[in-house]
Design a protein around this nucleic acid. Structure first.
Length: 827
RNA sequence: GCGAGAGUGGCGGAAUUGGCAGACGCGCGGGGCUUAGGACCCCGUGGUUGAAUAAACCGUGGGGGUUCGAGUCCCCCCUCUCGCACCA
């Protein structure tokens, strides 16, 4: 009877195991002090709908790593959850009339379904969602801890304001053209009273601890370093001529202090109004400000924008030379950086130079480059490099670099200033005038002022029975049942804070919560956290290089300071996966180039998707989706299927093991062991694309070994087949599980140990000696693996092709690279 | 402008320490099997010249250099991608 060959039916196989895995949660993580742990974490998704290719790319990387370490005997924690608060849920409520909570929970259902179909090795019992009160109770708890430690404070600040949405926006919610990502209205700047986290207190530690982050990509560290933006310089006081009050400035160029010819204040600086009033400049200043109001911060800070300003009618005195210089307000001076006031040195600062030319202000050269002499009238740009100080009192003749130090010393002696360090990083604005977020646990009482919600009253529940107010505004300020509250201190009438927290607060600590997601008494169990954390391998998109990763580092340091943990960095290693594009462009609905994982899971299977996405290229580069390529991956899995069922299984009862140390049998064994070696090394280096190609070579080799008329050894066939299935298992979890069962193994393939290789077998049996004459390949000669240098040389010189190329020439030198190559140098 | 990274066949991409450039896959060509094949199995496939699976030459963005030998190291230039962008 002829048996119809069983085909590779991915649908049937994947639904069978999916069901079993669903029931058994086979990757449940349990603390085991006797075993070494690995915490593998891929950034949790924002549930905007079904999974997209970016998710698949990220989570498949985590899956391979988790499954590999499981097989290597580690105790692996690999959890998943949802970043469930945020703006898109409110947008959906506005456009679709669906409540944010319903929209979010529906979407969680959709993406969970996709993630389960994708077959990832998660411990589903640890699933969490940031919009559930059990979770955000602790987000609020952290806010209280920040408040207790003086790290949460409320103040007036300049913020991005969308007049149409009636709320502040985070910088990342403002598009690059300066419009609101939701309604495309031009974003304005506005002064609002807001809650901040004092991340600037941690600037130095965030910078300093980067040396601990050896497992992070260099570019992420560079981006964070630039973001923190530490600079060294001096703080210098200039005296206002009219009132003698001191105005501090920050400069990185104290060596140019003698070149100051005017003085600038940011338009937002409080002194601007006063000086304008005192000197009858109010009209001009108001007009200037009115023009600035019309432009948003992005336009205002664009390099192309002309530098403009208004003279405020007053002067300041330069502390080093007593010179009197005019005070202006100027568009390009930032209030948020330094002191919001700057000394202007047009000869040595391009911005000041442009401003001076426009308003015909004097330019005074105080640093001369070597080899030329700058003359102000002939300068077309500022000279910003180092040189020799001139016209600088006692410092004249000094090199400008050491001059900086000397000027600082002098300033300190005179009490006019001091050395200072400045950072670009600003405090983290955490308030949002939004509904769908964790309420800030603060109460305002007329008598007691700002009162934190007592810990035992947490969580402050976000009422889910409210509808968005008109214009999409948060309903919280209009809901008396929410904001009306008794003061916890005086029991008088009080109001709740109606702002919610930035969703980056939720995600700054979720990786701690996975340690004990159901704990009701603490944000995380200290013992569980001590065992599992820090995260050994974090995986996610490069777009979070600064915000999320920096905030998480900040939170971790605060937790350390609170004595809850004994480490200061949350993520030991970081892998940033590249984008998946289609036709060279980012996938988007508007471009119509979206490829959806669901479609491919139906057509080709989850395994195919895993395999292809890994095979496309190295994890960190961006990769273009190709339908032919994904079909190739599917074809390979079919080939593996047939290899096991049609080629290998029938041969397990054929032939003998008598000759398995010779000829084709030995070659097969050698290939098997070499493949284990190569795949193991490549997985450890995260070179998954080449790991897959080595498995492909093994499969090709097994086909060759089990060819139609070939005599095979059952032991060799079994070893090769089982190895192939096992090492493929992290890349294609379903088909390998099914095949493992089909070959009669009882345990899950994913719980089987990773194979070891025999070093003697994992070496090529024969080497090819490449013979060159003057660096050009002239022959290739097969030789036994252990061939000696002298033998190689003799082989090379005996080659016919070599003789042809060396005839009538003098052999000057013979270079032998053991086991590889002989180069004969002739003249 | 500043910072980081990358340029390898028709395509995605491989190449420990300088040592066979193009592994593996896609695509393409040929063969087998077949009523048929867009399934499957096998073979071939950087370019030029050539009947050739002979032989030679050329080939890793461009130019120069070091070396017996360079995709890899050094210098100059070009292009692309990403990040930051008036931070005083």
């Amino acid at each position: 009877m002829i048996k119809t060959p069983e085909e590779y039916e991915h649908r049937q196989i994947e639904s069978k195991w999916r069901k079993r895995w669903d029931e058994e949660n086979p990757y449940e993580a349990v603390v085991d002090e006797g075993r070494e742990k690995r915490y593998i974490l891929a950034m949790y998704p924002y549930p905007s709908g079904k999974a997209h290719m970016g998710h698949v790319a990220c989570y498949t990387l985590g899956d391979v790593i988790a499954r590999y370490y499981l097989s290597k005997g580690y105790n692996v924690l690999n959890p998943m959850g949802y970043d469930a608060f945020g703006l898109p849920a409110e947008n959906a409520a506005i456009s679709g009339g669906i409540h944010p909570s319903e929209w979010t929970r529906n979407n969680i259902g959709l993406i969970r379904e996709d993630l389960k179909r994708l077959g990832y090795a998660y411990d589903w019992s640890r699933e969490l969602s940031t919009c559930e009160p059990q979770y955000y109770k602790w987000t609020q708890w952290f806010f209280l801890k920040m408040f207790e430690r003086g790290l949460a404070y409320k103040t007036d600040a300049v913020a991005n304001w969308c007049p149409s949405c009636g709320t502040v926006l985070a910088n990342e919610q403002v598009l690059s053209d300066g419009t609101c990502e939701r309604c495309e209205t031009g974003v304005q700047t506005k002064w609002i009273n807001q809650w901040f986290f004092k991340i600037t207190d941690y600037a130095e530690r965030l910078l300093d601890d980067m040396k601990l982050l050896e497992g992070w990509p260099e570019r992420v560290l560079t981006m964070q370093e630039n973001w923190i933006g530490k600079s060294h310089g001096a703080e210098v006081g200039f005296e206002l001529e009219s009132t003698k009050e001191r105005i501090g400035i920050y400069t990185t160029r104290p060596d140019t202090l003698y070149g100051v010819t005017f003085f600038l204040l940011a338009p937002e600086h409080p002194l601007v109004d006063r000086l304008a009033e005192e000197n009858g400049k109010t009209g001009e200043v108001d007009e200037f400000r009115r023009i600035l109001q019309g432009t948003n911060r992005f336009e205002r800070t664009s390099l192309e924008v002309e530098k403009t300003g208004v003279f405020l009618g007053d002067y300041v005195i330069n502390p080093v030379n007593g010179e009197r210089v005019p005070v202006y307000t100027a568009n390009f001076v930032l209030y948020e950086y330094g002191t919001g006031a700057v000394m202007a040195v047009p000869a040595h600062d391009q911005r000041d130079f442009e401003f001076a030319r426009k308003y015909d202000l004097p330019i005074k050269v105080v640093v001369q480059p070597s080899g030329e002499t700058l003359v102000p009238e002939r300068m077309t740009a500022a000279y910003e490099d180092a040189g020799v100080m001139v016209d600088s009192g006692g410092f004249t003749g000094m090199e400008s670099e050491p001059g900086k130090e000397k000027v600082c010393e002098y300033l300190e002696q005179e009490g006019a200033g001091k050395r200072a360090v400045n950072y670009k990083i600003r405090d983290w604005l955490v308030s949002r005038q939004r509904y769908w977020g964790a309420p800030i646990p603060i109460i305002y009482c007329d008598k007691c002022g700002i009162v934190p919600v007592p810990e035992e009253d947490l969580p402050v529940i976000l009422p889910e029975d409210l509808r968005l107010a008109e214009g999409g505004k948060s309903p919280l300020p209009f809901s008396e049942s929410f904001y009306g509250v008794q003061c916890p201190r005086c029991e008088g009438e009080a109001r709740r804070e109606t702002d919610t927290m930035d969703t980056f607060v939720d995600s700054s600590w979720y990786y701690f919560r996975y340690a004990s997601p159901h704990d009701d008494s603490m944000p995380f169990d200290l013992d569980e956290a001590r065992y599992w954390l820090p995260v050994d391998q974090y995986i996610g998109g490069i777009e979070h290089a600064i915000l999320h990763l920096m905030y998480s580092r900040f939170f971790t340091k605060v937790l350390f300071d609170m004595g809850l943990i004994d480490f200061t960095e949350p993520f030991t290693r970081l892998l940033c996966q590249g984008m998946i594009t289609k036709d060279g462009a980012k996938m988007s609905k508007s471009k119509g180039n979206v490829v959806s994982p669901g479609e491919y899971m139906d057509k080709l299977g989850a395994d195919t998707l895993h395999l292809y996405i890994l095979f496309m290229g190295p994890p960190e580069i961006s990769k273009d989706w190709n339908d032919r390529g994904v079909e190739g991956a599917h074809r390979f899995l079919g080939r593996v299927w047939r290899m096991v069922l049609d080629r290998c299984l029938p041969r397990l009862n054929e032939g003998s093991d008598a000759d398995c140390g010779r000829g084709a049998h030995l070659e097969m064994r050698s290939l098997t062991h070499m493949t284990i070696k190569n795949v193991t090394r490549d997985i450890e280096q995260y070179a998954f694309n080449t790991a897959v190609s080595f498995i492909m070579e093994l499969v090709n080799g097994i086909y060759e070994y089990t060819g139609e008329d070939a005599v095979t050894s059952p032991m060799v066939v079994r070893e090769a087949m089982e190895t192939a299935i096992k090492i493929l298992s992290p890349f294609a979890p379903y088909i390998t599980e099914e095949l493992w069962e089909k070959i009669g193994r009882k345990e899950s393939v994913h719980k089987e140990p990773w194979p070891e290789y025999d070093e003697n077998l994992a070496k090529p049996l024969e080497i090819t000696v490449v013979v060159q004459v003057n660096g050009k390949v002239r022959d290739k000669i097969a030789a036994p693996a252990g061939v000696h240098e002298e033998e190689m040389k003799a082989l090379a010189l005996g080659s016919e092709s070599v003789r042809k190329h060396t005839a009538d020439k003098e052999i000057k030198k013979v270079i032998v690279v053991p086991g590889k190559l002989v180069n004969i140098v002739v003249q």
